Amino acid sequence: MIYMLHVPFVNYATELVLRYGHGVPHLHLLTYLGLPLLVIMVSVATAALLRWAVPGVYATLTGGRGLATS
């Protein structure tokens, strides 16, 4: 899920931060250092939500990996 979600999320999140983050000191550095952690957290949370709510969609998106319970 991280691989699938990271490119669009990085693009949109960077655009939002740079558009609305005026006045924040060292904004580019903070974005460069903080965005990867945010992307991982959102991707893992999205995967968990999909796996719980719609396991069929999750299975399709991941090729059936990560569904075993044992």
Rank of each mutant, 00 (worst) to 15 (best):
P36L: 05
F9A: 04
S43A: 15
L27T: 00
M41W: 12
M1W: 02
P36M: 10
L61Y: 00
P8A: 02
P25N: 13
S43M: 09
Y12E: 14
I2E: 12
A48T: 06
T69M: 08
Y12T: 05
R65N: 03
G63M: 13
T31V: 15
V44Y: 09
G56C: 01
H26E: 14
V10T: 13
T60K: 10
A48E: 12
I40D: 06
L61R: 04
H26S: 15
G23T: 01
T14H: 00
V44I: 01
H28K: 14
P25H: 11
L37A: 07
L38W: 05
M1Y: 04
P36C: 02
H28M: 14
A59Q: 06
I40T: 11
L61Q: 02
Y32K: 15
L67K: 01
L30W: 14
T69A: 13
T31S: 14
L37D: 01
G21H: 02
L50F: 08
L67P: 10
Y58R: 06
W52R: 10
E15F: 06
Y20D: 14
T14A: 15
V7I: 10
S70C: 11
L5E: 08
A47T: 01
R51G: 05
A68H: 03
V24N: 14
R51F: 00
S70Q: 06
L29C: 09
L38C: 03
Y3A: 15
G34T: 03
Y58Q: 04
L30V: 08
G66D: 07
L16I: 12
L18N: 13
L50K: 11
S43K: 11
L38T: 00
H26T: 09
R51E: 10
L29D: 15
H6K: 15
A53L: 03
W52V: 04
N11H: 12
I2K: 09
N11R: 14
I2C: 04
L38K: 04
E15Y: 11
H26I: 12
P8D: 03
G63C: 08
N11K: 12
L37I: 06
P55E: 03
A48G: 01
P36G: 08
Y3P: 10
H26F: 15
A59L: 07
I40Q: 13
G21S: 10
I2D: 13
V24H: 00
H22T: 05
